[in-house]
């Protein structure tokens, strides 16, 4: 049916993607900001489930730890420390909103066209992405053998961002 192989992982994938889409739609249709934060947390969790389904357990766990855990909590902290009853005004058709909607549709059409025009590699369904090792070992070997320099550069970028955030926060405090 539909040219899909109806294996249990495929059914699980369809269920998970349905949940992700439902959460994503809820995230943009809720009026209360705190509900949006919770729905985004649902999207993050769903993405983690997809990663785990694909055999990338490490990325899945990191996704839960960083996105569903830390980032959603940060969003909630920001909401709670600001306005208790934060609500979005109901949507209205202004020029800006119409332009944004047209832009979104164009972006969606472009993305769809690009994705369909690619010829994706067809791996065997049972192919082992981890090449016989456990997933964290495979990730570690790839990071420290093939991608050592980019990895170190990314860590440098993170340190710069961290120091920058500290300096920005400190300046704000001195102004007050």
């Amino acid at each position: 049916m539909l040219g899909l192989a109806w294996t249990p992982p495929m059914i699980a994938f369809l269920v998970i993607s349905l949940l992700i889409l439902v959460c994503a739609i809820m995230a943009i249709s809720f009026r209360k900001v705190i509900y949006m934060a919770l729905a985004i947390g649902g999207v993050f969790l769903g993405c983690a489930a997809v990663y785990i389904l694909l055999g990338a357990e490490f990325v899945g766990a990191a996704q839960i730890l960083i996105y569903a855990g830390a980032i959603t909590i940060l969003i909630m902290f920001a909401i709670m420390l600001t306005n208790h009853e934060a609500e979005e005004p109901p949507a209205a058709w202004s020029v800006r909103n119409i332009a944004a909607a047209v832009g979104c549709v164009l972006l969606g059409v472009t993305l769809y066209a690009v994705i369909r025009s690619q010829s994706w590699p067809h791996g065997a369904a049972g192919a082992d992405v981890n090449q016989g090792q456990s997933n964290p070992v495979a990730v570690g070997l790839a990071l420290f053998q093939h991608y050592t320099v980019p990895f170190e550069l990314v860590s440098l970028l993170l340190i710069v961002a961290l120091v920058g955030a500290v300096i920005l926060a400190q300046e704000r405090k001195e102004d007050e």
């Binding site: 947390g41 990191a62 839960i64 730890l65 569903a68 855990g69 830390a70 909590i73």
Partner: peptide, 8 residues
């Protein structure tokens, strides 16, 4: 990772 979800 999961014990962080409880905080929510």
């Amino acid at each position: 990772a999961l014990s962080a979800i409880t905080i929510h």
